[in-house]
């Protein structure tokens, strides 16, 4: 399966200006990462926390499931997006969200399909 995830993330990187990406299970376990110089497992757990917490907060205001969670830093952003019921996609990028949203959504769909195959 790792080869499939690798291909999906490589495709994403070829289409969008992404510094690193990881695929994480909804409950915080790292599935695949190409991120360098980070503790990928911790980043995965925290990204899942971000998305989960956002989902709970959105639910409180009856807004349904959030499409995307963006955390803006000084130079870069963390973007987390659900990838089907079992996983999420988290990326680090300098791009504007509008520029990469579509390709992220497509990638998330591919991850969801890949996970559904096993």
């Amino acid at each position: 399966m790792k080869e499939i995830y690798k291909k999906i993330i490589n495709d994403l990187e070829s289409k969008a200006n992404i510094e690193g990406a990881c695929i994480v299970s909804r409950d915080g376990l790292l599935i695949y990462s190409n991120m360098k110089d980070v503790h990928a497992e911790s980043f995965a757990a925290m990204s899942a926390t971000l998305l989960s917490s956002a989902e709970v907060a959105m639910d409180e205001i009856k807004e349904g499931v959030p499409k995307i969670v963006v955390v803006e830093g000084k130079n870069r952003k963390i973007v987390a997006m659900g990838a089907g019921p079992n996983a999420l996609l988290a990326v680090v990028t300098k791009s504007n969200i509008e520029e990469i949203y579509e390709v992220l959504e497509k990638t998330a769909k591919e991850i969801s399909e890949a996970l559904g195959k096993k």
Partner: peptide, 19 residues
């Protein structure tokens, strides 16, 4: 060995993760 915590004012407010 590695530890990541989210605590504010002495209380944990998110998931903590350790390896």
């Amino acid at each position: 060995r590695e530890f990541t915590s989210v605590d504010r004012l002495g209380t944990t407010v998110g998931i903590e993760h350790g390896i």
